[in-house]
Design a protein around this nucleic acid. Structure first.
Lengths: 144, 144
DNA sequence: AATTTACATTTGTATGTACAACTAACTAAA
DNA sequence: TTTAGTTAGTTGTACATACAAATGTAAATT
């Protein structure tokens, strides 16, 4: 019984799933002030940094499949936070005024989230995040 | 543009989501031989270690909500891999013969998964997993 | 014993995400 | 310039997961 717990806790698949769900909850809480879930907010930030970006590139930045990006953009377009401009086979994405105005809230939420988890995990934060990032990139290569 | 990538890569929420999706893919591949997805397989292993376990405890071990566990068990029961025995307000969970026979495959898949990602992330493996585990436990406390 | 409170499980519903199949548009080769 | 191949985006469908409300059962209080 406690063996199986140990086995799970030694499993990268299991622990990183767990971490993802937990930090996800924290992020949901902090991004509540924006009325968006964190990933949607990040997508908006990406467009904010590069108006006219194409969907494919958004997918690459977020490491998400293009169908997922289509769906996210559908929703954000419905909420009038961004708009598509079709150009040949591409869709160029731009923020609306309303989308631009969200940005301040998003930045705030993002900062709050960082501060909150930094308080929990302490000073090793940067190192840990970097490690996680490195591993996931390696696995990404291995897996596709 | 590259700034936003950096910002994302420094964000624990984002990186751990990414890691979770990537290792998830790897795990799906390795658990294909069992005909189950990894979490279902883990659930079966838990029951295997403790026949008659109640659902609540399974949820605690897997750190998942009880409704999720209900749904998982529904499916595994449909596949005749385990069965519920109602006892008062509890459901006691037991493996069927078929469920017991799966166990060897599951252990194999699990081992294959470990070996595969160990090859990728190298010798720091244990340390990294432990770190992730610690962090997610801390965050879990903070967040509920 | 009757009533309230607490707890375990289930159900309804919603969200994030992926894959495979499809369409539309561009590119290269014949 | 027609044909074949490639790429970007969309749609259908499916799965994991959560939360809140509902149900059923047990325990505690009156």
């Amino acid at each position: 019984m406690s063996e199986i717990k140990d086995e799970l806790n030694n499993c990268l698949y299991f622990t990183s799933n767990k971490l993802s769900r937990m930090i996800g909850k924290m992020a949901d809480q902090e991004f509540k002030i924006t009325g968006l879930s964190p990933t949607y907010a990040f997508l908006l930030s990406i467009v904010n940094k590069k108006e006219g970006i194409v969907q494919k590139e958004i997918g690459e930045i977020l490491h998400m499949s293009s169908s997922t990006i289509t769906r996210f953009i559908d929703k954000l377009e419905n909420q009038a936070l961004l708009k598509r401009v079709k150009k040949g086979k591409n869709s160029l994405i731009y923020l609306t005024e309303k989308g631009k105005q969200k940005q301040a809230e998003i930045d705030q939420a993002w900062e709050n989230l960082h501060q909150r988890y930094e308080k929990v995990i302490g000073s090793k934060e940067a190192e840990i995040v970097e490690n996680i990032n490195k591993i996931s990139n390696q696995i990404e290569k291995e897996v596709k």
